[in-house]
Measured scan of single mutants.
Amino acid sequence: SYYEILDVPRSASADDIKKAYRRKALQWHPDKNPDNKEFAEKKFKEVAEAYEVLSDKHKREIYDR
């Protein structure tokens, strides 16, 4: 789930989600993982997609249904 990707509970606040996104984006940024760039790019995209949905109140409500 998007919550698992960002490592936050379903009850996470918008601020918690933003902090988790920043932490995970740094962790999986391809430039930070030169030895495993392809895998890092995949993870980085997953993190971005999760944040896009969970950071938008309307999209998150739909996702949580």
Rank of each mutant, 00 (worst) to 15 (best):
Y3E: 01
E61P: 04
D7H: 07
D15G: 12
K37I: 11
N36P: 04
E49P: 01
A50C: 01
S13N: 11
H29A: 13
S55C: 07
F44K: 04
Q27R: 13
S11A: 11
A12Q: 00
K37F: 15
S55H: 08
I17Y: 01
V8H: 00
S11M: 12
A20R: 01
A48W: 15
H29D: 14
E61V: 06
A40Y: 07
K57H: 13
A48L: 13
P9H: 09
S1N: 13
V47T: 04
A48V: 15
A50Q: 00
K59W: 05
R10K: 14
R10G: 06
A40H: 05
H58I: 15
R65A: 14
S1I: 05
D35G: 13
D7G: 15
E4H: 11
Y63W: 03
S1F: 08
D64P: 01
Q27A: 08
F44H: 06
P9Y: 06
F39T: 07
A25Q: 14
E52L: 12
L54K: 00
Q27H: 09
V8P: 00
I5H: 04
L6A: 00
R23M: 11
D35V: 08
Q27V: 07
D56L: 03
R10M: 10
D7C: 12
S13E: 05
R65I: 11
V8E: 01
I62P: 03
K37D: 05
L54P: 00
K59C: 08
L54Y: 00
A25W: 15
N33P: 03
S1A: 10
R22C: 14
K45I: 07
S55D: 04
H29C: 09
D15Q: 09
K45S: 08
S13D: 08
Y63Q: 02
P30H: 06
E61G: 06
E52A: 15
D35N: 08
S55V: 07
R10S: 10
R65Y: 13
D16Y: 06
V8A: 05
P30N: 04
D31K: 08
K59M: 08
A20G: 05
E46D: 09
Y21R: 02
H58C: 13
Y3R: 00
A12Y: 02
Q27L: 13
H29K: 06
K24P: 00
W28R: 01
R10F: 13
D31G: 08
P34A: 10
E4K: 11
E4I: 10
K59V: 04
N36T: 08
K43Q: 09
D35S: 12
I62N: 11
E49C: 08
L54I: 03
K42F: 14
L6Q: 01
R23T: 12
L26N: 11
D15E: 14
E61Q: 08
P9I: 05
R60V: 02
A50G: 01
Y2Q: 01
K45A: 12
W28K: 01
K32R: 14
E52K: 06
K43T: 06
A20C: 04
A40E: 03
V8F: 00
E61K: 07
D7Q: 11
I62G: 05
E46K: 06
A20H: 03
F39L: 14
E49N: 07
Y3F: 03
N36D: 08
D56C: 05
F39S: 05
E52T: 08
K18C: 12
I17E: 00
S1W: 10
R65S: 15
Y51C: 04
W28Q: 02
I5R: 05
V8M: 04
K24W: 07
A14T: 13
E46M: 10
S55Q: 06
I62H: 11
L6K: 01
A12F: 03
Y63L: 04
L54M: 03
K37L: 12
D7P: 00
D56N: 08
R60T: 02
K45E: 07
P9G: 10
A12V: 04
Q27N: 04
E49Q: 09
R10C: 13
A20L: 01
Y21N: 02
R23G: 07
K42V: 10
